[in-house]
Write a protein that binds this DNA or RNA. Structure first.
Length: 728
RNA sequence: GGGCGAUUAGCUCAGUGGUAGAGCGCUUCGUUGACAUCGAAGAGGUCAGAAGUUCGAUACUUCUAUCGCCCACCA
């Protein structure tokens, strides 16, 4: 049989065939494992929900790493006899997808989405998504991911939409979702609100201007945005600041840049007396902290900037102008009236929309929010530290689940980051002024408001035009994929899931919100362990990005070196939460390893003589090798259970190459080529035993080459014909 | 401003309270029979710096330096 083996593993033709064979076997689906008697009916479940990649994207090294780590866990647990489910899906990524299609529409037809009606625009998106989704699914298969395709889900399909409407309705009825006017992050380019987490900070140089509103006003203030001062309704000072104490409580009527202002002087502990003049001009409509100060001191909100970032008030050259133009006009006015006292360059962090790069304009707007601090009654709870019928808050659920060790976050240092985020968490703005996404299940008719899973009966009702933040549906992912709100067998069997494996960059967006939703809706955690991987970087430690042109396409690498090689090189040097590096050299190195597996196997097979019936006479060193193998098995098993994938991978690499191939095989040649049948037999059996065990342990890492070799290896009746389901 | 991480061979990184490790690269040699996508041997390190704990510290503690990351609207 060995003579049929080429000296190289022909991954290009074999890998797709092997994947097809796996898929056809149906063993990716846990139900079939039971049906075909591979595992017991009451086998312990093991489940992972694939973090759904954006439908717009193509597979990059980061998603490849995610798929590989999860596939290693899944294959390992499947071989250990667990009822193993790995459920695939894709994310509709509301804002990202809509922006992409809108750009195509503009580039190709020079039309905006408003030139189409809502329905036609959504049709375009659906088309685009459908095409993209399929290439994405092909790519996931190329990585060798043993996903249960029969359960494929999409965050915007009908089943998930029902889950979203149901969740929304329940939260609405509990008063956890409310509609209100608050200062929110407005993205003037995307023309939508974004949540606090979708805002990034960029350091930029700015000019800090110190001036007075008018000659009659006693206090100087400092600002980098003079045009917003038309919206000032107060000046805040520190209560202990002796310079200003005498003014606190007084109100001034003044005219500033052609705009009448009513300014009240208030005191607030948030003010730093040492910064600027120690006095803050409070602009409640266009600054988050100013809005807080205003609310506390009962100061009116005055909006002076609109959704297009244009001025709503002011004299000539100000009203109707863009903020940048208005700023110069206001400054001109200040200079002319000789009110400017100081101008200095400072470096300042400005808020930028993560998605569009536009400078965020805080605006007061009527939006939907999730209240994270409101008390409610939990109906059912298996969470440690929260009993059924106990009053709690969403924030407390998120905190308790991790603090009580119901959920373990790996590596542990992310615990601190997680808690810090929750401590500072404000209400989550969930409405988006987009067309693509889950439309908010609320209808209006005059002053009537109706929230329901299905539309209200009767004429004249109009649904809220906004859609939900894409993370709202993503937050339901661990159970919406299993059929919730229906009480399904899957939900009962596979929830809570065992592991959530994802990148550390979405711990807030996603991990925390899943804990919130699962805790609230099911009274249980969404997963037991969170394993966070890092960012894949290039040789120079740079992030891989299109603009840098340093993108190494995983599919190109698979084409050149095979999937097994790409998988190994992604795993090597991957600590939990640590960034890893990838380079073509590294992949080439691991391609050599797959060749090594192939050739060592070829040697063992070529020298294994099934006709030789001699009773083997094992030597001391045979026994030592087998004992060493047992120790190795224990170590690899422990490492994999312990999420030390790189450790296990490297240990196997080293053992297989430098112990098994270089030493054990080399030392056995004398006996293999000699003419003592008992010795020959012992050598053959020893090598075969070690080979088979190595194939099994290597299978989660390099599934293709090990599966191909397994097909050729002599197997006993109790052994599976496919290594994928062979006992660990 | 607050928090976190990193610093070990030329490069990329493991690791441990007791003689410093791997891969790649480099040098020399070998190999026509599993594999040149190979094998053997070798050069190469004050384990960032300082102090402390210890019989002993690369590892534990503290401080310092440099780099990186996250959080935060000093207006």
């Amino acid at each position: 049989m060995g003579s049929e083996m080429n000296s190289r593993f022909d991954f290009k033709t074999l890998e797709p065939k092997i994947y097809e064979k796996w898929e056809k076997s149906g063993f990716f689906n846990p139900d079939n494992l039971v049906k075909k008697g591979i595992i017991k009916k009451d086998a312990k479940p093991f489940s992972i929900m694939l973090p759904p990649p954006n439908v717009t994207g193509i597979l990059h090294m980061g998603s490849a790493l995610m798929l590989v780590i999860e596939d290693i866990m899944i294959r390992f647990q499947r071989m250990r006899g667990r009822k193993t489910l790995w459920l695939p899906g894709t994310d509709h990524a509301a804002i990202a997808t809509e922006a992409k299609v809108a750009k195509h529409l503009w580039d190709k037809e020079h039309k905006s989405k408003h030139d189409l009606d809502r329905e036609s625009f959504l049709k375009r998106i659906d088309q685009f998504v459908e095409e993209n989704r399929n290439t994405m699914l092909v790519q996931m298969r190329a990585i060798g991911a043993s996903l249960d395709w029969s359960r494929l889900a999409f965050t915007l399909d009908e089943a998930r939409n029902l889950a979203v409407r149901t969740a929304f309705k329940r939260m609405y009825d509990d008063g956890l979702i409310y509609r209100g006017t608050r200062v929110v992050n407005w993205d003037p380019r995307g023309h939508t609100t974004v949540s606090d987490d979708e805002v990034e900070h960029e350091e930029r140089e700015a000019i800090l201007y110190t001036f007075r509103y008018s000659k009659d006003f006693p206090i100087s203030i400092a600002t980098t945005r003079p045009e917003t001062k038309l919206g000032d309704t107060a000046v805040a000072v520190h209560p202990d600041d002796t310079r200003y104490k005498k003014y606190v409580g007084r109100t001034y009527e003044i005219s500033f840049a052609g705009e009448p202002l009513t300014i009240k002087v208030v005191s607030d502990r948030k003010i730093d007396p040492k910064f600027g003049t120690g006095a803050l001009g409070v602009t409640p409509a266009h600054s988050m902290i100013d809005a807080e100060i205003a609310e506390k001191n009962n100061i009116p909100i005055k909006q002076v900037i609109d959704e297009q970032a244009r001025m709503l008030v002011g004299g000539d050259g100000i009203k109707g102008e863009k903020v940048a133009v208005a700023r110069e006009a206001v400054l001109g006015w200040i200079r002319k009236d000789n009110l400017l006292e100081k101008e200095e360059k400072i470096s300042q962090n400005i808020s930028v929309s993560q998605r569009t790069g536009a400078v965020i304009e805080p605006l007061p707007k009527l939006q939907w929010f999730i209240d994270v601090n409101k008390n409610f009654n939990v109906e059912h709870s298996t969470l440690k530290g929260i009993r059924a019928n106990q009053k709690t808050t969403l924030k407390k659920i998120m905190q308790t689940a991790v603090r009580s060790k119901d959920i373990e976050i790996l590596p542990h240092r992310f615990n601190k980051i997680y808690f810090h985020w929750i401590d500072n968490l404000r209400d989550w703005c969930i409405s988006r002024q987009l067309w693509y996404g889950h439309q908010i299940p609320v209808w209006y008719r005059g002053d009537d408001v109706y929230c329901g899973v299905t539309p209200p009966k009767g004429p004249g009702w109009k649904q809220d035009p906004d859609v939900l933040d894409t993370w709202f549906s993503a937050a339901l992912w661990t159970f919406s994929t299993l059929g919730w709100p229906k009480k399904t067998k899957d939900l009962e069997t596979f929830h809570p899931t065992d592991v959530l494996e994802t990148g550390y960059d979405i711990i807030f967006f996603w991990v925390a919100r899943m804990i919130l939703m699962s805790g609230y809706l099911l009274g249980e955690v969404p997963f037991r362990t969170v394993y966070l991987h890092g960012i894949v970087r290039d040789e120079q430690r740079r992030k891989i990005s299109k603009s840098l042109g340093n993108n190494i396409d995983p599919l190109d690498m698979i084409e050149l070196y095979g999937t097994d090689a790409v998988r190994m090189s992604l795993i090597a040097g991957t600590m939990p939460g640590g960034d890893s590096k990838i380079s073509e050299d590294k992949i080439r190195g691991y391609r050599n390893f797959t060749t090594k597996i192939w050739n060592a196997s070829r040697f063992v097979l070529m020298n294994y003589d099934e006709e030789l019936k001699a009773k083997p006479s094992y030597t001391k060193s045979d026994k030592a090798h087998l004992a060493q193998l047992e120790r190795l098995k224990k170590k690899i098993t422990a490492d994999l259970e312990d999420f030390k994938f790189h450790q296990a991978g490297e240990t196997l690499y080293h053992y297989f190459w430098h112990t098994f191939a270089d030493k054990i095989i080399e030392d056995s040649k004398k006996r293999l080529y000699g003419d003592n049948p008992a010795e020959k037999r012992a050598a053959q059996e020893t090598l075969m035993t070690i080979l088979k065990e190595c194939l099994k342990m290597l299978h989660p890492f390099t599934p293709f080459v090990t599966e191909e070799v397994w097909q050729m290896v002599p197997k006993s009746k109790s052994e599976q014909r496919m290594i994928m389901v062979e006992k660990w």
